[in-house]
Design a protein around this nucleic acid. Structure first.
Length: 152
DNA sequence: TAGGCCATCTGGTCCT
DNA sequence: AGGACCAGATGGCCTA
């Protein structure tokens, strides 16, 4: 339990109007019954919200695993994960576009070996230089993510 | 200690 | 009516 808010409704919160139903409402419309029912629904909503956020975090973890993280020993934040995913997708898109421009696979691979050699490997804080055995893809995507334009 | 990141609670809104 | 989604508020944890 992380929140320590007072139990009562915040200032300005609307109070539920009295129930207009008749006898069939007796169980839940008595003062205590209504409060109990509202509290139960709130607790259930809290639990659903927790599950929803856990699902969201699971999705973020899956995204972190497929997004490049060269030389970063620290886990990417959610914001950084989204940034990196965006840059990664853009890089892949660029590569596909290049592949279409070059007729043969040989031409294309030659271009990338030339293009993404050590001299062209973009450096950023914490990044390690790729050794000869590093994956080709690691060379391709060793770049600094472009920052998002924050909506204002 | 300040700042960043995160989990949780909560009330509002929309949809089924 | 109830569930999903969202955004704001709040407090805990961690690091520079």
């Amino acid at each position: 339990m992380k929140s320590c808010k007072p139990g009562g409704p915040p200032a300005g919160a609307r109070v539920a109007p009295p129930c207009a139903a008749g006898a069939e409402c007796a169980g839940t419309c008595s003062g205590a019954g209504r409060l109990e029912s509202a509290a139960r629904r709130r607790l259930a909503a809290n639990a659903r919200e927790r599950r929803r956020m856990q699902g969201l975090n699971t999705a973020f973890d899956r995204l972190r695993r497929v997004v490049p993280q060269w030389g970063q020993d620290k886990k990417l934040s959610k914001y950084e994960t989204l940034q990196m995913a965006l840059s990664y997708i853009m890089a892949l898109t660029r590569i596909l576009a290049e592949a279409e421009r070059f007729g043969s696979e040989r031409d294309w691979v030659g271009l990338h070996c030339e293009h993404f050699g050590h001299d062209h490997y973009l450096q950023f804080p914490g990044a390690k230089l790729p050794g000869e055995s590093e994956l080709y893809s690691q060379r391709l995507f060793g770049f600094q993510p472009e920052p998002f334009q924050m909506a204002t």
